[in-house]
Amino acid sequence: MTVNIYDDINKLEGTFRKTDEFKNLEQAVEDVTSDKEAADLFRTFRDLQLKLQEKQMKGEEISGEEMEYAQKVAQLAQQNGKILEMLEAEMALSRIIDEVNKAMTRPVQSLYDKM
């Protein structure tokens, strides 16, 4: 019997979108997007994070100035109520994703546990 796991994945995606956590994040993203100041600050924060992660992955050193600037931008982002709510909603959704990931890898882990 052939199993089409993608049908189940698509169903899980639909269920995921119906969770309170997803809906809360969706609303929080909309709130940030509709506030130009918050949206600009978050884009700066996100772009800076990506730039620094890319430098780390390339093995490049991050300067003290870059770290200081990153800390200031992060602090400003966390002081913005809309951004903070969005980040908190994202963390709540991440917990669900972690649980799904654990459930998905449990069968593989159980194979190795038998060794």
Rank of each mutant, 00 (worst) to 15 (best):
T2Q: 04
V3Q: 11
V3C: 14
V3Y: 11
N4S: 06
I5L: 14
D7M: 11
D8T: 15
K11M: 09
R17Q: 03
R17I: 10
R17D: 03
K18A: 07
K18Q: 14
T19D: 00
T19L: 02
D20P: 08
F22S: 10
K23D: 03
Q27T: 14
V29N: 10
V29W: 01
E30T: 15
V32F: 06
V32H: 07
V32K: 01
S34N: 15
S34T: 13
D35N: 14
E37Q: 13
A39K: 15
R43P: 02
T44W: 03
F45V: 01
D47W: 05
D47P: 05
D47M: 09
L48T: 14
L48Q: 13
L48P: 01
Q49Y: 05
K51V: 01
Q53M: 12
E54R: 10
E54L: 00
K55E: 09
K55T: 04
Q56S: 10
E60V: 02
E61K: 13
S63M: 05
G64Y: 08
G64P: 01
G64C: 00
G64L: 04
E66W: 11
E66P: 06
M67C: 00
M67V: 04
K72T: 06
V73L: 00
V73N: 01
Q75T: 15
L76C: 02
A77N: 02
Q78D: 06
K82N: 03
K82T: 07
I83P: 01
L84C: 07
L87W: 14
E88F: 05
E90P: 12
M91W: 04
M91A: 13
L93Y: 00
L93M: 07
R95I: 10
I97Y: 08
D98A: 05
E99C: 08
V100A: 08
N101W: 02
N101Y: 08
A103Q: 13
T105V: 15
R106M: 12
P107K: 15
S110R: 12
L111Q: 07
Y112L: 15
D113M: 10
K114T: 02
M115F: 15
M115T: 07
